[in-house]
Write a protein that binds this DNA or RNA. Structure first.
Length: 235
DNA sequence: GCGACAG
DNA sequence: ATCTTGTCGC
């Protein structure tokens, strides 16, 4: 599965989103979660190179178990509402070299909290047939009231009367994070999973670790490919 | 027409 | 997203 959204026009990309939208599965995730992965990408300024990373963690204690890193290239520009066309191809490659797929994947960006319900998490999930959710640092679409300043409090993100996600205070006195289901799960699932993954940082562990690993990859500290962490690192 | 606008 | 120094708060 080698995707390339290279020469797509925005109107073609939009048509593709309307199409993929029909594949969204929003029923509750009914299987137990043993592993969860975080997906993120990193860039060099003014470069077409894209570094993608997926880190798999044990759901019970959020310990990193393995990671997949890929260096790719893409000329599709960043356009709000079309982020997937820039980052998904590399993420698909990173997922492809993982021997045992994680039960759930948390993506850095939105799920259905998108004008056409096709944020990067939803796009990635429907394309690869995986369970995904989006966790973004900034809002893209929808109306939301400011949640209380205490960790754990949240409000609803709405498009008219429809609930499309949550704005949550993941830690005291920090800006909220924006959560929404991507694929193969419901709104409540995305909220529960995110809460489970919170530690003492604004970002939940899967996304936070993915960001850390992919940056270490970009700066040359880690090598491309699939790697399992040594047991002695897991205690 | 004007402002908003994930990474 | 990435580039940056100091600074404020828990």
């Amino acid at each position: 599965m080698n995707i390339h959204y290279h020469d797509l026009t925005l109107s073609e990309a939009k048509a593709m989103q309307e199409n993929l939208r029909e594949n969204i599965q929003s029923e509750p995730l009914n299987k137990p979660i043993h592993t969860i992965a975080g997906a993120d990408i990193s860039l060099d300024l003014y470069s077409e190179t894209i570094y993608a990373g997926i880190v798999i963690l044990r759901y019970a204690d959020l310990q990193p178990l393995a990671y997949s890193l890929v260096k790719s290239t893409n000329t599709f520009p960043y356009v709000p509402g079309f982020l997937a066309f820039r980052e998904v191809p590399a993420l698909v490659q990173a997922l492809a070299q993982i021997p045992i797929a994680p039960d759930v994947i948390m993506v850095d960006g939105h799920g259905i909290a998108h004008p056409r319900r096709m944020g990067i998490a939803t796009h990635f999930g429907t394309l690869t047939n995986t369970a995904t959710l989006g966790c973004a640092k900034k809002i893209l679409f929808g109306k939301w009231p400011e949640p209380e300043a205490i960790k754990g409090s949240y409000t609803l993100i709405k498009d008219k009367e429809e609930i499309i996600g949550y704005a949550m205070r993941s830690k005291n006195n920090v800006k909220p994070i924006f959560i929404s289901p991507g694929n193969q799960m419901c709104l409540q699932d995305s909220l529960n999973i995110t809460v489970h993954c919170l530690r003492n940082h604004r970002l939940p562990e899967p996304t936070r670790k993915a960001h850390e690993f992919v940056n270490r990859f970009r700066t040359g500290e880690l090598e491309e490919g699939y790697h399992e962490l040594p047991n002695w690192e897991l205690f």
